[in-house]
């Protein structure tokens, strides 16, 4: 959290007009429209106003994100009071983080688990006991090493993207069914696919 937030906690009342906040007050006072301190309870889905599911509609997220930044970005508060500028900096930063987390499938999955009290790491590779997966990953890595031309790499890249998509769908299903342990395992797989994706793009 940034410095400003330490000084100005999210409070139950509008700093400007004093009216009480409703539950839905995330950015602006319902009464006077003044920008408020960043919420310390709302999750990223609430901030961007989308359903907390894995299968999100990316264009919707993009649109909501830009609409929010248009209202919250510090550039819009150049001539306002210091307190509003500080709130804007925090809010804008928070929305950026929310956007970055939700727009990427892996970080979105990790975040969904975190909301359920499960820590899946930060996309780091964990200990893995699924030998089948491990050997699959090894094979792909070898294939990447050996790939001679761009075409081969691109093929691997596509295959990997497909795996990521499948793992994501499986994760979404497990999450829906409340099978958190299973969902976590799918996140592990997604972590590997993400790694492989990065390795391929580095070589491309």
């Amino acid at each position: 959290m940034s410095i400003h937030q330490v000084e100005s906690q999210h409070s139950a009342e509008c700093w400007s007009c004093g009216s009480a906040h409703g539950d839905d007050t995330l950015f602006f006072c319902n009464q006077c429209g003044a920008i408020q301190a960043a919420s310390d309870t709302a999750d990223y889905f609430q901030l961007l106003g989308v359903e907390p599911t894995f299968m999100v509609n990316l264009p919707v997220i993009e649109g909501k994100y830009k609409a929010l930044q248009r209202k919250l970005h510090p550039d819009m508060y150049a001539t306002k009071q210091k307190v509003e500028q500080d709130f804007s900096a925090d809010q804008s930063s928070l929305v950026n983080k929310a956007y970055a987390t939700l727009v990427n499938p892996l970080s979105r999955a990790i975040y969904l688990l975190r909301l359920r009290g499960i820590e899946a790491g930060d996309g780091e590779e964990g200990t893995m006991s699924d030998f089948e997966l491990l050997s699959e990953v090894m094979e792909i890595r070898e294939a990447i090493e050996e790939a001679e031309d761009i075409g081969g790499l691109q093929k691997l890249h596509q295959e990997n993207a497909e795996k990521m998509r499948q793992s994501g769908a499986a994760f979404a299903a497990a999450l829906q069914a409340g099978e958190l342990q299973q969902a976590l395992e799918w996140v592990h797989r997604m972590t590997y696919w993400d790694r492989i994706d990065k390795e391929i793009t580095r070589k491309l």
Binding site: G117, E119, D122, G126
Partner: peptide, 10 residues
């Protein structure tokens, strides 16, 4: 060290 990747209360 966060706990080795596994189910863990945050």
């Amino acid at each position: 060290e966060t706990a080795p990747t596994g189910v863990r209360k945050k």
